[in-house]
Amino acid sequence: MNAEPLLVIDDLVVEYAAKGFGKKPFRALKGVSLDIRPGECVGLVGESGSGKTTLGRAVLGLAPVTEGSVRFKGKDISHLKRRERRALADEIQVVFQDPYSSLNPSLTIEQTLAEPLRVQNVSAADASKRIRGLLDQVGLPSNSADRLPREFSGGQRQRIAIARALALSPQLIVCDEPVSALDLSTQARVLDLFKDIQEETGVAYLFVSHDLAVVRHLSHRVAVMYQGEIVEYGDGGIVTSAPEHPYTQRLLLAAPVPDPVRQEQRRADRRRLLDSQRDMEVQAGVA
C-alpha cells in the first residue's frame, strides 16, 4: 500500500466576504493542516461554526481558498478553473448531510445515478449495468432505479447518495455529516455500509461530523476543530477516549452516556473538568 498521502491540506485559510462595504471578511478557517492517506478514514469533529463543513467544501472546490493549499496526489487543487475541477470528478466525490435536498426531487434514481456516468461518456447500456451494480452495492433493490426520491426513507436516500458518490470509483469521498439526519438504528447500518465499502474499494474518507461517537466508530484518525482551527489530531481511539486538549475534553464529557449510572458519573466528571479549567484560566489570567 502506498504510504504517500492522498490529500494534503497545508495551512488553509478560507475567508468569506462580509456583507457591507469596508467590513472585515469572516475567517472560517484559520490555517488548517491535515493529511489523508489512501484507504484511510479521517474524522473531522467539531460543533456548529467550527469550520468543519467549510474544510470539506474547500476540498471539493465549493469554498473560496484565501491562503494555503489543498494538494491531491501532489497537485494543488485549491484554485482550479471550472473545467479543471470537473476533470477531478472521478477522483473526489461527496455525500452530503441532508438526504432530502441532496437528491433532485424531479429526477428518478436512475437519472440521478446516470448523471456522473454520462459526463464521462459512459454508454447508456454500460451506465445501466453500472447503476444496477451500484444499487446492489449499497443494498437497495434493483427496481429502485425507476423511482423518485420521495418514495424512499431518509436512510435509503442516503444510500442513493452514497451510490452516486461511488459511481465513478473515486479515491476520496468527502462525507459531510452523512448520518446526522438519520435515526439511530438506520445510522448504525449506514455507518457499517461506509465501512464495508471502504474495505472493499480502498476509498479514503474525510468524514465530517459533530458526533464524537460516530467519528470514533469509523475513523482511523480524528481531527478536532474549534473556531476555525484544528486543536487536536491523532489516533481515533486516543483522541475520542483520552483527549489532551481542553476543548476535546469538554466535548467528550458533554455527550450524555446512555446509561443512568454512568451518566451520573460523567456529569460529575464534567462539572469537575469545567471547574478545573475555569480555575486554570483564572490562574493564567493572574499570571
Binding site: A3, S219, H220, R221, Y233, G234, D235
Partner: peptide
C-alpha cells in the same frame, strides 16, 4: 455507538513514519 470500539489506526501502513502523529496545540 457510544460504547463501541474505536476503529484504530489504518492497517497495512508498514512504514513507521506513517504511524499517526499526535499533536495538541
Amino acid at each position: 455507538l457510544e460504547d463501541g470500539a474505536a476503529r484504530g489506526p489504518l492497517a497495512h501502513s508498514a512504514d513507521r513514519n506513517t504511524l499517526p502523529e499526535r499533536s495538541a496545540r
